[in-house]
């Protein structure tokens, strides 16, 4: 018994290191945060549309097609970085992107979209960040993929990069 004990720390040590090693080399993204909402229905919400000025009711709109939900703000620099990818998604994939304008000035947002181009099918105003709380948003930008049954399939925290763009495209294709 006593002979076996001294080697025990070594075994535990290498077990843990191999976990670390595996996670380092495997293609992963630490900012892909766990979400309790994955594979669940989207939270229901109502908001004012910045574009039409009408009331947007989630239960009516999320039906029959894959939709991207993107939380953004004009004051957020990474949002500017990912903007081109959003345009690419809306052009190439022909999916609706609903932008949720988080704690922002509507005036600035309109100018921003005019200058950079508008990938969104609709932009909703979330001045107080209530919708973001419902969706469990961690920090903006943040993007969700919602399938045709209104179920959240994917969540990404942070700006969309080339790699994430490919991943989102794959998920959209799979859900169509």
């Amino acid at each position: 018994m006593q002979k076996k004990i001294p080697i025990f720390p070594l075994i535990v040590f290498f077990f843990i290191l191999s976990v670390f090693f595996y996670l380092l080399i495997v293609d992963r993204n630490p900012s892909e945060l766990p979400s309790n909402l994955i594979n669940k229905n989207i939270p229901t919400f109502e908001a004012k549309s910045l574009i039409s000025g009408k009331k947007f009711i989630s239960t009516k709109e999320f039906k029959g097609e894959t939709i991207l939900v993107n939380f953004f703000a004009t004051w957020c620099k990474p949002c500017r970085d990912e903007h081109d990818f959003l345009k690419k998604i809306s052009d190439k994939k022909k999916v609706k992107i609903i932008g949720i304008n988080y704690k922002d000035s509507s005036k600035k947002t309109v100018i921003w979209l005019k200058n950079l181009g508008n990938p969104y099918s609709d932009v909703l105003v979330d001045k107080k960040g209530r919708i973001a709380i419902e969706w469990g948003v961690y920090g903006i930008p943040e993007t969700f993929v919602v399938n045709s049954n209104g179920i959240i399939k994917y969540r990404h925290v942070g700006a969309i990069t080339g790699k994430i763009y490919k991943k989102i495209s794959l998920i959209i294709d799979k859900n169509e």
Partner: peptide, 16 residues
């Protein structure tokens, strides 16, 4: 990680 593996592997083996 490799450095930790060398340090830990050597010292804990020695301990064993």
């Amino acid at each position: 990680l490799i450095f930790t593996a060398i340090l830990g592997g050597y010292s804990l083996l020695l301990f064993g």
